[in-house]
């Protein structure tokens, strides 16, 4: 039985060649093998969102993603959000509006917010959207929508009001990409 594979992982526009045990999660591969310590290990069971990264632009939890299953995807970690050295609008808003205290959940919150704003721009409804019909007007992005859409990211410091504020301000200013 072959329990290891040599794979290519493309992270923040750089391709890495790795020989990994199939048990390696994407989170551990990013942190331990590639030195991308932005994604954080909180619960390691998909409940806290601290390990959130983008896979082909969609937010996922990297602790429940096997590294071998991520081969072929474009992986973006928080380190890749400001690739040109300039903070993204969502990052700048988190800094300016105190969207964190200890910062442990922040990289996951940022990746999740970028993915969430793209979902929103694509017209996806949420559990608090009053009418999921695709034929009506797109509901306004308000605090209740942001809280629901970001419910997969926990913050033990309780910085939620500032996180919601930062996301709403970014959405109003920047529209789509965060």
């Amino acid at each position: 039985m072959t329990t290891r594979s040599t794979i290519s992982l493309r992270v923040n526009d750089v391709t890495h060649r790795l020989c990994l045990d199939h048990r390696r999660t994407l989170l551990d591969a990013l942190r331990e093998d590639l030195g991308h310590t932005g994604p954080k290990k909180g619960c390691d069971q998909g409940q806290c969102g601290a390990c959130t990264v983008l896979l082909d632009g969609r937010r996922v939890v990297s602790c429940l993603t096997l590294a071998v299953a991520a081969e072929g995807a474009e992986i973006t970690t928080v380190e890749g959000l400001a690739a040109d050295g300039e903070l993204r609008p969502i990052q700048e808003a988190f800094v300016r509006l105190d969207g964190f205290q200890c910062g442990y959940c922040t990289s996951g919150q940022l990746c999740s917010a970028v993915g969430m704003l793209a979902e929103r721009a694509a017209g996806w409804p949420s559990a608090v959207t009053a009418d999921v019909s695709p034929d009506g007007p797109v509901a306004e992005l308000d605090a209740a929508e942001v809280r629901e859409r970001m419910s997969g990211n926990l913050c033990r410091c309780g910085a939620y009001p500032s996180i919601v504020h930062a996301i709403l301000e970014t959405a109003a200013r920047d529209g789509v990409t965060g």
């Binding site: 998909g46 996922v60 999740s112 993915g115 969430m116 979902e119 559990a127 695709p134 997969g152």
Partner: peptide
């Protein structure tokens, strides 16, 4: 969403944005 809104609502009521992706 148009033909079976309760199905869309049920899926959206489960898990988180990351897990649904």
């Amino acid at each position: 969403r148009r033909r079976y809104p309760a199905l869309s609502q049920a899926v959206l009521a489960g898990a988180s944005g990351q897990l649904r992706n």
